[in-house]
Every structure is written in C-alpha cells, then in structure tokens.
Nucleic acid binder design. Structure first.
Length: 417
DNA sequence: TCTGGGGTCCTAGGACCC
DNA sequence: TCTGGGGTCCTAGGACCC
C-alpha cells in the first residue's frame, strides 16, 4: 500500500513569531539570537536575502556595516512555544492525524484524503489566517520525500507541493543537492561527493549494498525512502524521553568551586522541575564542565561524570546532592569555566519506574516539590529554591533585546487602540 | 568584551559470562 | 601464520536533527 505523508513546516519560525506581534518588524530584516545573545539562530526572509549567515556570532554581525539596520531580538522561547501550540492545534483540527516533530514542524497523515495537495494549500492559508504564521506543506509517499517536497514548496512560496507523481519527483530529486537531503549532514555530504553523488537523484540510484556499508542502516533507509519505500511511519505516541539535559554557556567566566556550585545547583533544580512536570523519574545524573574552547590560549579542561541515584527519583534534594558530589569529583582549580550542564539519565514514567530496596515514597516531600514547582511556574524560575540559594541569577542569561511574552503573560498582552 | 541548547539513533569495542 | 565461540550489557563516540 502506498502512503501519503505531509510535512508542515513554519517559515522562519522564530523570526515570524517576532514579526507577528511587532508590526514595526514586518518587512524588515529581523534576526533572533541564541541564549546569552550569542549568535544568530533565526532569520526573517528579509534577513536571509541580505545573506546573513546562520549561526554568525552576534558581535560579528554587529560589526558588519551592511547589517547595521537589521532588527535584533533575544530568543523568547515562551512566546515561540505558545505560538507553536496554536499552529499545531490548527493543523490537527483539519487533518486525520499528526505527529509533532519539532517546535515548528509536524508530519501529517494524508492517507485517503482526496485532492491532498489542494487540501494542503488551503490548510496553509487557514494557519496563516488563524495564527499569522506562514507555513509550507510537502507531500510524498515517504517522510524523506515529504521533507524534500517541503523544501520545494518553500522555494516556490506556494503553500504545498506533492511529489507523488514520478516525473515531478525526479525533477525535484535532480535539482536537490545531496547535502539538502534529510539525514545527510556535513560529514556524509563530503563522503558522498567523493563518490560522485551530487544530487538526491544520484543518491536514490546508489547501490544499496554500498550505501549500507558506507553509512549503515540509517543511510540505507534514506536511499529506500528516496525511492518511495517508506521505512519510517508516523509516530502518534510520543516515545518516552530517555534523557533530559539542562546546560548553558555562561555570560561570564567562573574561576571558583563556589561559583560552579551555584550554577550546577541552578541546572539541577531546573532539570528536576522538568522531570516532575513530565511525570518522570531518573536513576542517574551526569554533570559536565568545560573551559572556553574559543580561547585556545587559556587553560583548557573538559570533563564529565555520571553519578547513580539511590533508585529512581525526582526528588530535588537527592538529585542536587548527587550533582554537587559529581561536581566535586571533576572540578579542577585554575580553569576559567565557560560552560556546564547536567543530564538526567535513564528516565521512566514514575509509575513504571524500576524499583529496588532504596525506592521509597515520601508523600510529604512530594507535596513540597509540587508546591515549589507551582510557585516557580507562577513567579519565574528560582522564585523559591531548595537549600542554600545562589544570591543572584544575573549570570544566567543576557537577553538584552527580549520581546514581550505577548500571549502568555497578561501584563504583556497587546493593547488594542 | 562578545561564539546556542536540547535531543535521537547507531556502531564499535571492551568487560564479562559460560 | 594466526586461532574458541558465542552471548549480553555497557559506554564512548560519531552521525544526524531542529
């Protein structure tokens, strides 16, 4: 049976979110910066046409005269998350089923939908009207081909493209560079080019055994998918998360154990909140620290350690102790630290967590955690915290150009005049 | 002065077992 | 000339994604 997959993808998502709520940004080149206002992670179409490179450090962009009039915003993930929900809800209302793939993309089950391409075009229009966000939809018999069709739709700015038809498909395969195929990153691109494989079409014609030998089952799957053989179904049930990571580069540099403790304390606390909000427990935690890899003249050091927890837990106190124990193990004096983080590992839903002798339930502590989570979500992260708290969070992020949280905080809602 | 954060999957190789 | 031969589990590292 042949399938029909759709892939809906928001155009320039973060930049579009900023432009939707700030009319003065519309039509102007606009970029969004990463945490700490470090580098450019999203560009509006006007910014793209100025050829601002994705990922350029902000200080470099600022120093470039041609970019001086570019509008700049700090990443506002609260806003983007909320807009994402609106877009996804709108799509889900109009199609049989969806699989949310990332903050700005979802796969669509288009099996059995008559005139799917026309339907998809109409859907992209509906999303634009309801949310203000422009999307494009690609359609094809596999996820990889739907991705390919989506690129084409974006390029043509036409709402939707279907590559089910073989002639249309082959044309698009031939005009798609190998590095633009979903699943082919920088490394494989280089190796495939050496083999004389320059386009998606060349890749689809590649010998299956060679693909398997060179790139493993993942590469083989991609070749098959380019040929219309579906190897990846829609996943309607989100698989349980296995790891959870909170990490940051610092706005400043840390030289002391106390300074690092402060940050690890913060990361662990945020991580356990996330853990509990997903109804999960962890059985181990990794802590990592790193110097400044962009300054090779400074002493370099990078290390990590994994600490087992006593059974599976989501208790902030236990996880915090393990994290600080780990930090003590790997901390070396004399290093200017620039980045650190924690990973919670081996996650399971609380009910089905593997239990052992150490597993214990303590309703009072659970209630305490619940209360703290509530206060922190209401008043902002770190409003109440566990144990001795770091004095300030000014180090946490520099976000000098943050827009308002137009959709989720009533003090910042837009006022109609 | 200033360079993101959060994930997944696969594979190779070592430790250990019988 | 070399040499056991399977299994399992774990970890590190490489590749990719947005």
């Amino acid at each position: 049976m042949t399938h029909l997959f759709g892939l809906a993808d928001c155009n320039n998502f973060y930049a579009s979110c900023e432009q939707v709520f700030q009319s003065d940004l519309r039509g102007k080149p606009t970029v969004v910066l990463s945490n700490n206002d470090g580098c450019v992670i999203a560009l509006s179409k006007e910014a793209k046409s100025l050829k601002i490179p994705f990922g350029i450090p902000y200080f470099k962009m600022k120093a470039t005269p041609e970019y001086r009039h570019v509008q700049v915003r700090s990443a506002n993930f609260t806003l983007y998350g909320d807009m994402s929900n609106r877009v996804m809800d709108t799509i889900a209302l109009n199609v049989p089923d969806t699989e949310i793939y990332s903050i700005d993309e979802c796969f669509i089950d288009y099996n059995g939908v008559p005139n799917a391409e026309a339907h998809a075009k109409q859907l992209s229009e509906t999303v634009r009207q309801w949310t203000g966000i422009a999307i494009c939809i690609g359609l094809g018999p596999t996820k990889t081909l739907a991705k390919l069709a989506n690129r084409k739709a974006k390029k043509e700015a036409c709402g939707a493209v279907d590559v089910t038809d073989m002639d249309i498909r082959n044309d698009i395969l031939k005009e798609t560079e190998i590095g633009d195929v979903w699943g082919v990153g920088r490394r494989w691109k280089a190796r495939l080019l050496l083999q004389g494989i320059n386009t998606a079409y060349d890749f689809s014609r590649m010998d299956r055994r060679l693909a398997r030998d060179m790139m493993g089952v993942v590469g083989l799957r991609t070749v098959d998918e380019l040929n219309g053989i579906s190897c990846q179904d829609l996943e309607f049930i989100t698989p349980d998360k296995q790891n959870l990571c909170i990490s940051r580069s610092f706005g400043d540099t840390i030289h002391t154990l106390d300074g690092m403790k402060e940050r690890i304390h913060y990361f662990s606390t945020r991580a356990t909140e996330k853990l509990r909000s997903g109804g999960l427990v962890a059985s181990a935690i990794s802590v990592f620290v790193r110097g400044n890899r962009f300054r090779p003249e400074l002493p370099q050091y990078s290390n990590s350690v994994t600490v087992s927890l006593d059974g599976s837990t989501s208790d902030t106190g236990e996880i915090l102790n393990a994290a600080l124990y780990g930090l003590n193990k790997i901390y070396r004096p004399g290093i200017p630290y620039k980045k650190a983080g924690v990973l919670l590992l081996d996650l399971h839903p609380k009910e089905q967590a593997p239990s052992n002798l150490f597993t214990k339930s303590n309703p009072q502590r659970e209630k305490l955690m619940h209360t703290m989570d509530g206060l922190n979500s209401k008043f902002g992260p770190g409003a109440v915290s566990y144990g001795q708290i770091p004095q300030s969070r000014t180090w946490y992020m520099s976000q000098k150009m943050l827009s308002n949280r137009f959709t989720t905080h009533w003090r910042e809602l837009l006022v109609a005049k």
